[in-house]
């Protein structure tokens, strides 16, 4: 059983939902990333989504774009991101790590080289934003061979046939994008999300995570009531952006505690 499956099974057994925070590797500075990951894990995160910085993050709103820019100032490329995962794994062998990023850095490294290096570093799943399933069959196969999960997005505009196609390619969990827009955009419509998640459930047994519009603890709580996992990205990155070196870890830990409490309530 993969780490991701193990975590979802354990949560289900306890009737709890997963909290998945997102940070961009190298933001605000590469020296903080591994500490931030440990802080996330110790203050309520069940899994961590780690963003690969990219020069052209087309699906991201301004908050996560700035995170990428801060990381790229320090030349944090995919190799460095994998080094960070490896360092994290020396002390934490349980918390699943999902890499989230764009196709080009992965293709630049080479698909085979990437899957081998990611597996060796301790990565559990990969979400490549601009790889629709039709364009990445080889990549899905390579991940599968290495024992990593292929995480895919589903959106409010995905029709029934598309949902079928995607749930058949996905593993680990499904990531439902709760709104039409980029990461960190306007407020999500919880009733619509509820209906969509219910519709997706009729087609798959995979856990369903919801993200892209979870702005605060109250929204996280509502999402937790209808999904298996709550993904919080821009809100975490804003907290990083607004922290100083001195209070970075304590601010993140406090935010995670708030979200955890809301989700468990």
């Amino acid at each position: 059983m993969s780490r991701i499956q193990t975590v979802f099974s354990a949560l289900k057994a306890n009737n709890k939902k997963a909290l998945i925070p997102y940070i961009t590797a190298g933001d605000p500075h590469p020296k903080h990333t591994v500490n931030l990951m440990h802080t996330l894990a110790s203050s309520g995160a069940d899994m961590i989504e780690l963003g690969i910085p990219f020069s052209d993050p087309m699906a991201d709103g301004p908050v996560i774009q700035r995170a990428s820019e801060r990381a790229l100032v320090h030349k944090v490329g995919l190799r460095k991101v994998l080094d960070m995962v490896q360092e994290f794994r020396q002390k934490d062998t349980k918390t699943p790590i999902i890499l989230m990023g764009y196709a080009n850095p992965i293709e630049a490294m080479g698909m085979e080289k990437f899957t081998q290096a990611a597996k060796a570093a301790g990565v559990d799943g990969v979400l490549t934003v601009d790889y629709p399933p039709e364009e990445c069959k080889d990549f899905i196969a390579a991940l599968q061979v290495s024992g990593m999960d292929s995480i895919f997005l589903l959106s409010p505009t995905s029709d029934a046939a598309r949902v079928d196609l995607i749930v058949n390619q996905a593993s680990g969990f499904l990531y439902y994008v709760s709104l039409k827009g980029v990461t960190g955009a306007a407020n999500l419509d919880i009733e619509e999300v509820k209906a969509r998640v219910a519709a997706i459930r009729t087609k798959t047994d995979l856990p369903i995570g919801v993200g892209f519009g979870v702005k605060d603890a109250a929204t996280a709580r509502k999402v937790a009531a209808i999904a298996d996992a709550v993904v919080v990205g821009s809100r975490v990155v804003v907290a990083i952006e607004q922290s100083s070196e001195d209070n970075l870890l304590s601010n993140i830990s406090q935010l995670m505690a708030e979200l955890r409490t809301a989700i468990d309530a």
């Binding site: 990219f54 020069s55 087309m58 490329g77 995919l78 196709a103 080009n104 850095p105 630049a108």
Partner: peptide, 21 residues
């Protein structure tokens, strides 16, 4: 330049060794 993915298509792209444009 190497082949890569940007702006929705695969093509030849000016990029660094990390795949950033």
């Amino acid at each position: 330049s190497p082949v890569g993915v940007l702006h929705g298509n695969r093509t030849y792209l000016m990029q660094d060794s990390d795949g950033n444009i």
